[in-house]
Write a protein that binds this DNA or RNA. Structure first.
Lengths: 324, 324
DNA sequence: GCATGTAGGACAGGTCACGACCTAATTGAG
DNA sequence: CTCAATTAGGTCGTGACCTGTCCTACATGC
């Protein structure tokens, strides 16, 4: 009787999240209460909106199923590590469209992640970052810790201090009120109010160093253009690399579409076994060349010339590598 | 007063997981209770092992910090989707060493994931699978749903029915008692007791089709060699492709190690700016050639000859692509 | 020093949680 | 078909617990 009701409910929730059926008697045993109380607890969970499905008859039992709202997830150590590592991949550029949500979830998780697990995440995370960020491109890699610190400060309305490297390489210290963290293509931007400059700025996150939240909270101001993403686009759009991709493939359009990242656009069929892809790609040439190579089908670069040059370089490097 | 204590505690836990400070008065307002009760609730959470840090003085507040145990995660829709998508990447072969934990966590999450979110996960998941599985290799892609069904059945001790494609292409229906789901390199294996054949089998998951748990539970038998992983290795080891990689790189060993997947082993320095990598790689030649190309440094393949052949093919394809 | 926050004790009143006992309904196995 | 095992739900009495209202102590920033 020493254990109170809320604790038992949480424990019950964690038991039911195991993908299996739990007979009421076993639950009663585990929770050290009577079967009647287990039934009442299940009722309570249902009232809270978590649908517990019960199969009747002999060999019946309880099981948590999908409902309208997501119940609080109770994870063990390994699962938490797996989620953190997976989220880092998602916050990088592995998955388009969920980068910001990934960072939010990561910040939420890391805030409460026991330190012993944090070490394991770091070890595994660095081991895998080579895949996502790859050595390819302009080397603008971002530490996941940086992203989570920025995300926490942004959503918590806390002032943020960091060092920033300008385009000419000069490093300055900044004290800012962060407003929004935005992912665009393979880059991250922070829209913030710079307290020293007394004006709005858009920072490239890969140039941010040693960020930390001061703890001081601030009352949000109004963003100039009304929308932070708008402001970011207005200030740094032309700075981002982009080019007009034009290539033909000796493979069906559907297959090519499946083997290229969605940001490359969709190819249009020019025949049963050939297609052409034209779109403006917002990325580095080296990265684009690599992704085209990874498609694994015969293709021809029609433009731009710089991309053809990159592909040629990669090709000759491989030829040299094999011509031992 | 209609809301009971357990519900309020869960709500408090979800509020505190937002990475920000919460003054007691605001919590009291949100939870519709007095400030005194908020303090008591915070105490209760602390008793449950979730360390709530309170900053004293004016402008103080409560915040959930990292403790010994991970508190139940309360996620919103977007965060849940981000986690599911990230886990699919982790369960694929993006991250080595956490595949099985990723699948367990994914099974746990998908069991309770509202259907509206499931659709979004599927959409995003297929869009990104091209990166992880890539078109490269022997095309042995595995649907994430398959993995989660197998994982649930395995941990829930439920009988599993599926169709299986033998090496000669023949499809048969199987009824099994699944014991363990094992990730090895880029492949997944299921160790199970085949009820029709009345014997133990190791199944390649990429050849499993339409799996579903029958719901009937079974009492675990003893695995032949005592350990399922041992059994798997004994039965299918020679079937897995592997070769002796030997290559030299014109770059520091540390940099090469960072740019190659860990499964390739660690290169040993042969000079300040050169190194040699020798290890047995358990993967397809085409995939290995691609990964070497992605390293982005000058290199030479010394062996095996088949790998050099693959690299040469890739190189000539790229040269053709650029020679428009 | 003052305002504002957390920390926590004491108390009264009402509520609710628990276990014990009961019956009904459902399902699978023999 | 029958039996066994399971969920579902009602009722009741006792006792614990939860809440709000006081109160004081303590820490912090301006």
């Amino acid at each position: 009787m020493t254990t109170d009701t809320p604790a038992r409910l949480l424990q019950l929730l964690s038991l039911l999240q195991t993908p299996r059926e739990w007979p009421g008697s076993e639950l009663a045993d585990r929770l050290q209460v009577s079967r009647r109380t287990v039934r009442r607890d299940v009722d309570r969970l249902r009232d809270l909106g978590y649908p517990v499905q019960a199969t009747m008859g002999a060999d019946g039992g309880y099981r948590l199923v999908a409902g309208k709202a997501l119940p609080p997830l109770v994870l063990d150590d390994e699962e938490a590590v797996a989620i953190a590592v997976g989220l880092r991949a998602g916050a990088g550029h592995a998955v388009e469209g969920i980068e910001e949500a990934s960072v939010r979830a990561l910040a939420k998780l890391e805030q409460v992640l026991p330190s012993r697990l944090r070490h394991r995440v770091n070890t595994l995370g660095t081991a895998t970052s080579s895949l996502v960020y790859s050595g390819v491109g302009d080397g603008a890699t971002i530490a996941p810790e940086t992203l989570t610190v920025l995300a926490s400060a942004t959503s918590g309305h806390e002032r943020l201090r960091f060092s920033y490297e300008a385009a000419d390489g000069a490093r300055t210290r900044r004290l800012t009120e962060p407003y929004r963290l935005i992912s665009a293509g393979r880059r991250w931007y922070l829209v913030a109010y710079d307290l020293d400059r007394d004006d709005w700025r858009t920072f490239r996150v890969d140039r941010v160093g040693d960020p930390f939240a001061t703890g001081a909270r601030f009352a949000p101001r109004e963003v100039p253009t009304g929308d932070a993403a708008e402001f970011m686009r207005a200030t740094v759009w032309r700075a981002a690399p982009s080019f007009e991709l034009d290539a033909t493939f000796d493979a069906p359009a559907a297959e090519v579409a499946r083997r290229l990242p969605p940001s490359f656009g969709t190819p249009e069929a020019t025949g049963a076994d050939s297609c052409r892809l034209r779109s403006t790609v917002q990325d580095s040439l080296e990265w684009a060349a690599m992704r085209l190579a990874m498609a694994g089908v015969e293709f021809t670069v029609r433009g731009p010339a710089e991309l053809a040059e990159q592909v040629a370089q990669l090709g000759s490097r491989l030829t040299r590598a094999a011509a031992n």
